[in-house]
Each structure stands twice: as structure tokens, then as C-alpha cells.
Simulated scan of single mutants.
Amino acid sequence: MKKSSFTDSKIKQLSPAKKRYSLTVDTGLSIRVMPSGVKSWVVRIPFNNRVSDITLGHFPEIGKRQACQLAKRERQKYELRAPNGYTFQDAYCLWKSLKRGEIVSYQSEKQRLDKYVVSALARKQLDDITAPMIIRLLKPIEQSGKRATAKRCLMRIREIFDLAVCAGYVLHNPIAGVSRLFKAPKKTPRPSLPWCELPAVIDVICQNANKHLQLIFFFS
């Protein structure tokens, strides 16, 4: 089995041979090419003095990064070190590519995520990120009085994970129900006069304001 580094495009170019052959893609993970041209992802599991090869699926239905993620989960069952899969940075880049130019608040949302979230989570594997981890990240923001900021960050993190699930980066969204642990932002209503004082206000406007201000007042 030869050690090599492949992208999906390189794997696509692999040609079948008269005999089956395998190429190592990452620790414990290889791509197996059959004489028929079928390409399968295989993870090798050494356990209890035995070695087992487990087929994870076929290429191109499963790409390299997804195969690494599946291999990681399989090896975790046996407490083995797993190859890297998708990181939060990967999912964040996907979110940016889809939301840039699509939402009015994109720049402010991106700046908020960069400041409070991405610096802490960027290199973490998606399936290593848990609800308690996100709570520990955002609770200090809420406790500092920035409830709206914490809620906005949580909303966007949930959105990033939803996109990652749809793209096959991760199997589920670990923070689907976390929002109920955060208090809603305090809303301060704009000052207003009691309705019973409206006739007096109208009298003042009619007597003292010019026609332009009167038109603006009555139109509003």
C-alpha cells in the first residue's frame, strides 16, 4: 500500500489495473481501486491483535473529506487516533460563500462571528464541537450584558451547522436546542405620550409649527 496525498480530482483520475490496488490517503484510510473501476473507501482497524478492513462507501458518492470524517468516527469506536475531517473553519467558509451578498447584515454578522466565535472554534473538528462547548463560549458574552450579541452569534452558529449537515460535513447539528438556555435581549420601547394627551399635542403643532412640520407630523 503506497503512501500518497490525494484530492478528489486526483482520485477521480485513478485508472483501474488488472489487479485490485489501494492507496493510503490518511492514517488508517485508503482508497481501493477495483479492476472494474469501482473505487471504495476503506478504513483499517487494528484491534485485539487483529486487523480489520471496513468499507465506508464508494467514490465519488463520498469525497475525501467525508471519508476522513467517517473513518474518524469508526476509529473512535476503538479509541484510535483518527484522521482529520471537516473543521469549523470549513463550515464557516461555506456559510460565507452562500451568505455573501444574500443578506443585508452580512458584514456586521461576519465581524461579530470573527470577533466572538471563529477565533475560538476555527481549527476544531466539527464533530468534536458540543453544546456545552458553545455554551461556555457564549455565556460570558451574555453575562457581560451583551444578550443580543450572544443570541446573534448563537443563531449564526446554528445556521453554520445546518449548512454543514446539508453539505455532508457532519451528521447532525449539536446545538439545535441550545437557544432556550440564553435569555432574550432586553427591549426598551421608544418613549411615547399617553393617547389621552394627543389632542393637546395636536393643538401645539397647529399653533406653533410651520406648514412643513405640520404635514410631516400628520403624515407620520
Score class of each variant (00 low, 15 high):
Tyr92Lys: 07
Phe219Tyr: 04
Ala167Asp: 15
Leu154Ala: 07
Tyr78Leu: 03
Arg180Thr: 01
Ala17Ile: 00
Ala164Tyr: 05
Lys211Ile: 01
Arg123Trp: 06
His212Asp: 10
Arg156Gln: 08
Lys77Glu: 10
Ala91Met: 09
Gln66Val: 10
Ala82Gly: 15
Tyr86Pro: 12
Asn49Cys: 02
Leu198Asp: 12
Gln89His: 04
Asn173Arg: 03
Thr24Lys: 06
Ala184Arg: 04
Leu121Met: 05
Arg75Lys: 15
Lys183Trp: 01
Glu159Asn: 12
Lys99Glu: 14
Ser52Leu: 06
Asp128Asn: 07
Phe59Trp: 04
Val204Glu: 15
Lys3Tyr: 04
Val118Cys: 11
Met155Ser: 09
Ser119Trp: 01
Glu197Gly: 07
Ile134Cys: 08
Gln125Pro: 11
Asp8Ala: 08
Leu137Cys: 05
Glu159Leu: 02
Glu197Ser: 13
Ser40Glu: 12
Asp8Tyr: 06
Ser192Asp: 11
Ser144Lys: 00
Met1Ala: 00
Phe182Pro: 09
Lys151Asn: 00
Leu14Arg: 13
Ala209Thr: 11
Tyr169His: 13
Lys39Arg: 04
Leu171Thr: 13
Val118Asn: 08
Pro35Thr: 10
Leu29Asp: 14
Lys19Leu: 03
Ala71His: 11
Leu29Glu: 15
Cys68Ile: 06
Ala148Met: 02
Leu154Gln: 00
Leu80Cys: 07
Val170Asn: 11
Val33Trp: 05
Asn48Gly: 13
Glu79Leu: 07
Lys146Gln: 07
Lys183Ile: 01
Glu159Thr: 02
Arg180Leu: 00
Asp127Asn: 08
Met1Trp: 09
Leu138Lys: 02
Tyr92Ile: 05
Leu23Ala: 13
Met34Asn: 14
Leu14Pro: 12
Ala131Met: 05
Asp114Pro: 07
Leu181Glu: 02
Arg44Phe: 08
Ala17Arg: 00
Ser179Met: 03
Cys196Gln: 05
Pro140Thr: 01
Tyr78Ile: 03
Ser4Pro: 11
Gly37Thr: 14
Arg100Ile: 11
Ala148Lys: 01
Ser5Tyr: 07
His212Cys: 06
Arg75Pro: 13
Ile31Thr: 11
Asn84Glu: 15
Glu102Met: 04
Asn208Ala: 00
Ile135Pro: 04
Thr55Phe: 06
Lys186Gln: 10
Phe182Asn: 02
Tyr106Ala: 13
Lys2Glu: 15
Thr55Pro: 10
Thr188Trp: 00
Val51Leu: 10
Ser108Asp: 06
Ala91Cys: 12
Gly37Trp: 06
Met1Ser: 11
Arg81Asn: 15
Ile129Cys: 04
Lys64Glu: 08
Asn48Gln: 15
Lys115His: 14
Ser30Gly: 05
Ser220Gln: 12
Leu98Met: 14
Lys18Glu: 12
Pro174Gln: 03
Glu79Lys: 08
